Computed example of a mutant assay.
Amino acid sequence: MKLLLVLLFTFGLSTACLAEVTIQVNDQAGQPLEDAVVELISSQPGSGKAVHAEVRQQDLTFVPFVSAVVRGTKVEFPNMDKTRHHVYSFSPAKEFELKLYVGKPEAPVLFDKAGIVALGCNIHDYMQAYIYVGTSPHLAVTGKNGLVTLAVPAGEYQLVLWHPWQNADWQPQKVTLSAGQIYQSSLAITHQQKPQKPKKGFGAYTGS
């Protein structure tokens, strides 16, 4: 089943010459869609402040399913389960491996290259998650309400949209952020079920 994401952009000027950008992402049925990444890349890029982020292993799944971080961010991978996990990625944007462990690894993982990082677990094949590593500090992931709100300086930007289920690369759109304007765009995806804890009796390996 293909769904069409409809994005509604509303802009209003706030203090310090910032444009507040509210983006609503819906599916073809008009229902809010979560886990879509929105990035606004300035025509005059500056250095974004890298912060720490976290992807948990909880209830035999990765939480959150989709994360968005700026390049240079260090990400923690705490294991909240009693079951040991073996986290890895073979993605060109970041190859790493955290062998069987519980609790918190000794050091976070540095994501220093822009791109999409697909996460997996060597013990539980169904466990999947994604980290979108952007070049701009102006990026966010839609929640269950399909909304993101960003405060950015008024000006020209490249709007980038990404979702794990998209059917093809989405071409960036040039937008000029100012007050009182509305923009719409769309992204075709094939709807899938997010990874979830399997039925009882599977995935109980604890390691040693």
Rank of each mutant, 00 (worst) to 15 (best):
V102H: 05
I41Y: 06
K99I: 09
K49S: 07
P64V: 01
L40P: 01
R56D: 08
R56T: 08
F90H: 11
V69H: 09
V38A: 06
V102D: 04
F96L: 09
H86K: 01
F62I: 03
I41F: 04
K82P: 00
D59E: 12
E54M: 14
S67E: 15
D59H: 04
Y88E: 07
D59R: 03
A50D: 07
G46Y: 10
Q44D: 12
L100M: 12
V75F: 04
E76R: 11
N79K: 07
P92F: 03
V55H: 02
E97S: 13
L100K: 14
H86V: 01
L40Q: 04
V70C: 10
E54P: 02
A68V: 07
K99L: 12
S42W: 08
E97W: 11
G72A: 02
S91P: 07
T61G: 00
K74I: 01
T61H: 01
P32C: 08
G46A: 13
D59L: 09
F77M: 05
V38I: 15
S43V: 13
E95T: 06
K82T: 14
R56K: 13
V102W: 01
V55W: 00
E34D: 14
E39I: 05
A36H: 06
P45V: 09
S47A: 11
F77H: 07
S42H: 13
P92A: 02
R71G: 00
H85D: 11
S67R: 12
F62E: 04
G48H: 07
L33N: 01
P78L: 03
E76G: 03
K74H: 11
P32A: 10
Y101W: 09
Y101S: 03
P78A: 05
R71D: 01
G48D: 00
E34T: 09
V38H: 02
E39G: 00
S42N: 15
F90I: 03
A36M: 13
V51Q: 15
S47Y: 05
D59F: 08
Q58E: 13
V87S: 06
E54I: 12
Q58L: 14
V66L: 13
I41D: 08
I41C: 04
V37N: 03
P32F: 10
V69C: 08
L40R: 01
V55A: 01
A53L: 02
V38M: 07
V75D: 06
E39C: 08
E54Q: 14
S42Q: 06
E39M: 06
G72V: 04
Y101V: 03
V102I: 12
L40G: 01
E34G: 09
R56E: 12
H86A: 10
R71L: 00
H86W: 15
H85P: 00
T61R: 15
A36N: 11
A93P: 00
D81M: 02
E76H: 11
H52W: 08
L33Y: 05
G46Q: 14
K74M: 08
V37L: 13
Q57K: 10
A36L: 12
V63C: 11
G48Y: 13
L60V: 13
G103H: 08
N79Q: 08
L98R: 12
V69A: 04
V38G: 01
F90T: 11
V38P: 04
F96P: 03
V63Q: 15
Q31C: 04
D81I: 02
V75L: 11
T83N: 15
H85R: 11
E34W: 02
D59K: 07
Q57Y: 13
K99W: 13
T83K: 12
V102C: 05
P64E: 00
P78M: 02
